[in-house]
Design a protein around this nucleic acid. Sequence first.
RNA 1: GCGGAUGUGGUGGAAUUGGUAGACACGCUAGCCUUAGGAGCUAGUGCCGCAAGGCGUGAAGGUUCAAGUCCUUUCAUCCGCACCA
Length: 822
Amino acid sequence: MVYWIDMKRYNPKEIEPKWQQIWRETNVYTANLASDKPKYFAFGMFNYPSGNLHVGHAMNFTISDVKSRFKRQQGFESYHPVGWDSFGLPAENYAIKKGISPQESMAQLIPDYQEKYQKMGWSDDWEKEITTSEPEYYKWTQWIFVKMHEHGLVYQDSRWQWWCTKCQTVLANEQVIDGKCWRHDGKDDLIVEKKEVKQWFFKITEYADELLEAVDALDWTESVKLAQKNWIGKSQGAEVMFEVAGSKETITVFTTRPDTLFGATFMVLAPDHALVREITTPDKLDEVEAYIKATAKKTEVERQASKEKTGVYLGVNAINPINGQEIPVYIADYVLSGYGTGAIMAVPAHDERDNAFAKAFDIPIVQVVDSADNSSVQDFYSGYGIAVHSGPYDGLTSKKAGQKIVDDLANKHLAIQKTNYKMRDWSISRQRYWGAPIPVVNCPDCGPVVLKEDQLPVVLPELTDFKPSGDGRSALARAKDWLITTCPDCGKTAERETDTMDTYVDSSWYMMRYLDPQNQSQIFDSNVANQWMPVNFYNGGDHATAHLLYARFITRFFSKIGLLDNPEPFKQMLYNGKVIAKDGTAFSKTLGNGPDPLEIIEQGYGADALRTYLMFAAPLELGARWDPQGVPGAHRFLSRLWNIVQEYIEAPAVELATDQSKKILLIVHKATKKVTDDIEGNRFNTAIAACMEAVNKLYLLKTELPFGQNNVWLEAFEALAMLVGPFAPHIADELWQLLGHSDSIQRDHWPIVDTQYLQVDTFTLVVQVNGKVRAQLSLASDVTKEQALEAAKADSHVQEFINGKDVKKEIYIPGKLVNLVV
RNA sequence: GCGGAUGUGGUGGAAUUGGUAGACACGCUAGCCUUAGGAGCUAGUGCCGCAAGGCGUGAAGGUUCAAGUCCUUUCAUCCGCACCA
């Protein structure tokens, strides 16, 4: 009873560094990629080393670490890789802020992370570490550009793009948040503007259909799958040509509702549509120019904020091809140049936005779909119905009318069936220094020449001044020694491309490089990659769309060119929630107001308690609400486990009767089953709860049974050490050692469920009368229905409720309950 | 606006196919113990009620012997996307 007084207290500060050192020295986490064992490849989304290790990192990487450790303990060859997504704007901005070069800042940041990763107790394989900003890596990022080009998937084009004056770079749409640059979204930061920029594109749209079709089969968080589908945004429809009256020009629109063509009473072009200046009548030009200018300043947020529709009549009409009617042509900011053809036929009777515009500009509204007498409910809700006021098409269903209208116009070359995608090609150009140089030489005679594989890598020169050049080009424009080269085709003096690649390119193929990080002659060895791909488990709390889509695109490309068998990169993807503050607000990286994981560890709670709390706090998909009492609570649990094992070790040998052993083994095997199933199913919180419950029950049992050295008690504590291993690996190894083992628990040690110990002799039968619980009876497991009902009715308390009444119905659920209806 | 979730004690959250609502933990209360600690141990802790009992999973209906779970309506919060033609 008082053993604990002499016992060694649980001291993570002592055992955690000890095991971290042993793990390092014995390379337990070094994966043998050629192993014959079943393989498991798991990791969290690539770390961007832009500052400190925060609690979000702790959350993300512990999740994949738990999965990885679980499989490793189960006997898998488990590979939990580690690397740095070190190129990119945040790193460059950080370096500017610190007044050092990005190379130097990485040289400082990465070792700091390395140390902290080890203190978190993650089972990272440091032998295969990769860094995207090293030439050994980005040579192959450039190689992808070359290969993409070879396969016709690269082109150069000018586009209106979001432009951040602070970053001096183009922003992707997804990088514009609330009208501001994603990295400069503070109160004082300016709203970004649009600027026409020449840039390089990857033709991801060519893969749109297959990327879409493959989504359903993925074992991914459903909301992420949906986001993928919405991002691709496939829609079926038609392109219809409208001649401009008194001009040779034609306006092409995309519509999903060609059946409403008779209701098109005006047209709208996006303000930056190429035809606007061509067709506007001279008297309207000033007004149009002013509107274009005003729109360019506006953000999409501002455009949407105003419910009132604005626009300008161009002074010309277009001819509706279906009925020859002249309809006015406008520009309006509610039409976007980035979608479809950047022009619409407006049908105010059947589109809310068109309707608002028509009302504001006093344009006729013609109903052409009668949805009143719909036969199908589905049609009714989708706005479909029977064509009216549509000439020869009257009476047809919307679907048939649309089809016939397109067919008829197609015969006159005025329409064509068309599938449209919301997804646009991937702009990979960045006018930034800190990225992989795009492997192109711009020759005055030959134009842009893409380099050959043997001319790679194009090494990024180290610059002292790496701020953007200010002319829209990157700092590389100033590195004359590097910039000036000879054309590989004609040998004349030429300049290198000064754009660098989007970091999303770096992070879209790293999972394969993890499998062959030192390969000098190939991007990776396909034989090895095919053994390990797709990644078994991938998780993160960000980048639900772009990164995952790009990774899928690149992987699919590799598969097409014969580098990989499987076209999908991630078999399972868990989109985990974030760690948020107690008041429900987000921890801000910029404010740095989150709890510091290392501080918590150093305080004496240890990494095991931190990890256990994070995994216990909530289901992974929900994310954890940070509770300052949480880590102490987890520490308390680990202490209890520690103490009972200590007590066991110091106690003398005891004998246990069979029924006593069974009590212990029931607890252990029940917990083993629960923890095994729950980790498999990513329900870490209930897995940990099961461990806690088992420990609590063993504490109770130790007071009622002989407690001390005995194989059954030993089995119980060994099992618990193994079960907590994925969450609290240090204490697991320490307990394992204290229980007499000389090997590490980390590989091939996971308890097996023996179902014979799950059998119980008695169970609790719940007795309800009219659905209300009136008694709980302990009965033998093999009780018959008759016996159970008899016992239920015989209970004195139940008697009070059924006495003198007619039992009209008897419900019996074997092993669970009886419900008597009176 | 559209799409997706989520609503359960003071708090985070548990609850196979509908079958004991509140596991596990935090917090709180009381007691014990002591090397007085960031301890540890034991008991209690949904609400009302002395009790018997009643009420209780955002709200309102419904199906059922039985509903957190299924159906209908509705409210709130959060997250995506955003004038997508």
